[in-house]
Design a protein around this nucleic acid. Sequence first.
DNA 1: CTGAAAGCGCTTACAG
DNA 2: CTGAAAGCGCTTACAG
Lengths: 341, 341
Amino acid sequence: MTSVTIKDVAALAGVSLATASRVLSGHPATSSESRARVTAAAEQLDFRPNAQARSLRSAKTHVLGLLVSDVRNPFFADLAHAVEQAALETGYVILLGNANELEDQQNRFLDTLIDQRVDGVIVAPQGDGQGSISSLVNRGIPTVFVDRTVDGVSVPCVTTDSRPGISQAVKHLAEQGHRRIGYIAGPQSISTGRERYAAFVEALKEAGLDQDPALTVFGDFQLESGAAATERLLQLEDPPTAILAADSPMAVGAVAKIRERGLRIGPDVALVAFDNINLFALLSPALSVIDHSVEDMGRIAVDLLLKVIDGEDPASVSLPSGLIIRESSLPPHSVNTQRKN
Amino acid sequence: MTSVTIKDVAALAGVSLATASRVLSGHPATSSESRARVTAAAEQLDFRPNAQARSLRSAKTHVLGLLVSDVRNPFFADLAHAVEQAALETGYVILLGNANELEDQQNRFLDTLIDQRVDGVIVAPQGDGQGSISSLVNRGIPTVFVDRTVDGVSVPCVTTDSRPGISQAVKHLAEQGHRRIGYIAGPQSISTGRERYAAFVEALKEAGLDQDPALTVFGDFQLESGAAATERLLQLEDPPTAILAADSPMAVGAVAKIRERGLRIGPDVALVAFDNINLFALLSPALSVIDHSVEDMGRIAVDLLLKVIDGEDPASVSLPSGLIIRESSLPPHSVNTQRKN
DNA sequence: CTGAAAGCGCTTACAG
DNA sequence: CTGAAAGCGCTTACAG
């Protein structure tokens, strides 16, 4: 594992170390003669510059970090993909990290990014911004928030405005005759958890529905908590006739639990999920969802970050959300007419 | 963004640079006096050592790379999670990359890992091992293959033996009376694509079923190709009565296409998918799947890699697979009795 | 256009 | 236990 260094390349090419470096890093002041020889030598030796050494001098790594909250949440997997595709054209490489919805894992990864001196980072943050998030910002490392934000940390961010989607969902359910709507909330330590809950409460008022606090159960955005919350809701003395889940993993947990209890989604319990996961359209009945564009979110996040790296201070972006009605929130007769299967 | 360096820490603590370094890197030869002062100074300045500089000297980064084929494939998202959890206890941090089933993207990421001089890498490889894969191996960078292998590249690997699962699936379908089984194959440039296809052909023979080559359509392991392949199969003059898909994204494409054509999964076309994705159990009818343990695979991959890093040469591991029968491959009456929903 | 030299931020024998 | 110094592999003013 004795690496080939630029010294070896220079020696083989018969030029000085400085000239070799200039050719390799594309500096204009080089003769075509030396360009040819150095390039050939580098190729012959399969030389890969040591990024450590390079960025120790130039303070540029051409690497961006992306921290998602949970890779197993399809929304974030899609987001990772979208960010990556957008970054691909810019010449940056993305290092992906998974917080697994845990602040501790988030901090470990962010510390690693700081240590590696990445050029910038996109993060869907956990927690209150005390730990590594503040290190990131205090060091002036270009940072952009995506999907979520942290109060008091002012970096550009791209988020979804959950309100229209949730308002439409509650209104729609009310129109179907539902008076008691159960809500599986996200954690209130996370901005999206708070915003969506507030939007739900607001929407209930607007629609004049039952505001029984027992109808809201708090989960942690992961599958098991969605199942547990559903169980609690269904065991209520006066259980809800419809359930809204604040993200897709919790919705999956809800689907599993509703079936486990021998109830039918739609006729017995209507269900609407936040996040438009492709498989949700394939469930029977197909799930109604609150949709927002993960492609836009990823692309804009990269855009914003590149601007921050360039020293600009771009404005934050808020993306729209909206309800897509499918069978899971329609009455049985309607389901029958719509269903092909 | 003027970083705090170890020099600043040493100055504030009133010791030499060397002493500060020894304290910070846990070298035993330090007095408790200087340990206290340096630690305090580092804390006060929020000092984070520059990993570039550190590993330039010590040739250790404590970072591992993990390259998955496709983050949006839930199997690989689960794998990423499993690897990460296993690595967490070892003090290594995982840098995750996504090849998006493209050799070019794989190579870009692997080159970045080489440049960053990570301590080792776990990869689910694409291609023939000519590009960055061979760079990795030739440089002696500790490498382990996971899920897939590359012919002629001899690194330790942990894979699934697809044969028992596929053999059981074909046998099961034959028992249900199916004579013409469609197969949505993975690309033959990928080891799992080849192995599963060979296992399918073998299983057909064993079961004495129709070996019409038109019944096999090759996809690329991604969703759209699964839908396209299903369309071709269903448009056959003598279409299959059952379909087996070689991975889960292609199975999702198959589900969507079967429904789009107004057919019922189970009664009209039986369906079995490779990979046990949690949502598959929630479809109606629930999908029969070929199961293998992604947790074991992730954990073992990390184990193997740590051994390679320690200079050992661990043996490769092959994990079992097996069929889980659900409604999608059972006759209608059986479906009716089993279905709760 | 080119080379010698300084320096990026660390670690680590080498003396003491 | 501690400090001065060399060196990891690069880049980049500085002269020429």
